Amino acid sequence: NQASVVANQLIPISTALTLVMMRSEVVTPVGIPAEDIPRLVSMTVNRAVPLGTTLMPDMVKGYA
């Protein structure tokens, strides 16, 4: 089972991601792979991401 990136807090729309905002967790459905966390830092989300939500590729500008 692959770990995915999960929001560690509410991430408001257009917020630049930082390490403290994300954690890795094995979830269903599978989202962005946890090993991509370093790549996600400073990318922005294009929607509000509630606490505990799995980050999907279409939620992060420039990721997909």
Rank of each mutant, 00 (worst) to 15 (best):
N1L: 15
N1H: 12
N1F: 14
Q2D: 15
A3H: 11
A3W: 06
A3D: 06
S4E: 01
V5K: 01
V5N: 03
A7R: 01
A7H: 01
N8V: 11
N8F: 04
L10T: 10
I11Q: 01
P12L: 07
P12Q: 10
I13L: 10
I13A: 13
I13P: 12
S14Y: 15
S14I: 04
T15F: 06
A16E: 12
A16P: 15
L17I: 08
T18C: 04
T18M: 06
L19W: 11
L19K: 14
L19T: 09
V20M: 14
M21E: 03
R23D: 05
R23G: 11
R23C: 05
S24E: 10
S24D: 09
E25K: 06
E25F: 06
V26Q: 12
V26K: 06
V26G: 05
T28D: 15
P29L: 04
P29G: 03
V30R: 05
G31E: 02
G31K: 01
I32Q: 00
I32A: 00
I32H: 01
A34I: 07
I37K: 05
P38I: 13
P38N: 13
P38W: 09
L40A: 00
L40P: 00
V41Q: 06
V41F: 04
M43G: 02
T44F: 12
T44P: 07
V45E: 03
V45M: 06
N46V: 12
N46C: 10
R47T: 12
R47K: 11
R47P: 02
A48Y: 14
V49C: 06
P50W: 09
P50V: 06
G52Q: 01
T53N: 12
T53G: 11
T54H: 02
L55Q: 01
L55H: 01
L55T: 01
M56I: 12
M56E: 09
P57G: 06
P57V: 06
D58I: 09
D58T: 10
M59D: 13
M59V: 08
M59K: 01
M59Y: 14
V60H: 02
K61Y: 10
Y63D: 03
A64F: 05
A64K: 14
A64P: 14
A64T: 15
A64I: 14
